[in-house]
Amino acid sequence: MFQKFYDLLIAGGAWLTILEGLWATVQISFLALVLGTLLGAGVCAMRRSKHKILSIPASLYIAVLRGSPVLMLLMLFYYVVFAKSDVDALVVAIITFGLNTAAYIAELMRSALDATDKGQVEAMRTLGFSGFAAFRYVTLPQAAEIAKPVYQSTIINLIQWTSVVGYVTITDLTRVINNISARTMQPLFMIIVGMIIYLGLSYLVTGIFALSDIIKKRKAGAK
């Protein structure tokens, strides 16, 4: 078993290619998450707007992007929309996953904001606080707390979705695992290794969220 582990994952520098693949996965996931969160916040604001000219396009965006398989979207962007351009495949993947994630994040933000108590905002306004201050000090902290578990799931989903980027010439973690499987003809072993690495990434995300909770509790305790 140890010998197999060495032959498949260490010998010849295979572990370095795994790290490179992992780096590509982390890059796409992280940058798509940043883009998706910023864009998602914008779409959420549009979706909650009283003006139909804003809310209808936002609803349409969410319906289309959430309803289409991300692999199809990725291939459409890379092979059709950016076919004639020299935009790097990694950038296309970040844009695609960012757009797709934005639709999910917009909806999770909307549901979190809707779940907060509007009476508290009204009370703040009565006390003379501005609309922004009421949002910043009352609505946002509560909505963030409500959205946190779903946001965490969205990040984990995003990491897993990126495993299809091999279709657009990117050598990510899945692609590297497949390459090693094909070369060594030990696909079962390599799939398990791949799963463990993805699981590790998911637990890292869970750990970061758990850590933020601990820090928050400690801060609250210190006060």
């Binding site: 010998a11 520098g13 050598t171 094909a182 003809m185």
Partner: peptide
Amino acid sequence: TGDLPPMDFVAANG
């Protein structure tokens, strides 16, 4: 494709 040895595959060093 990198998945059809011995014709087309990726070596250990990538």
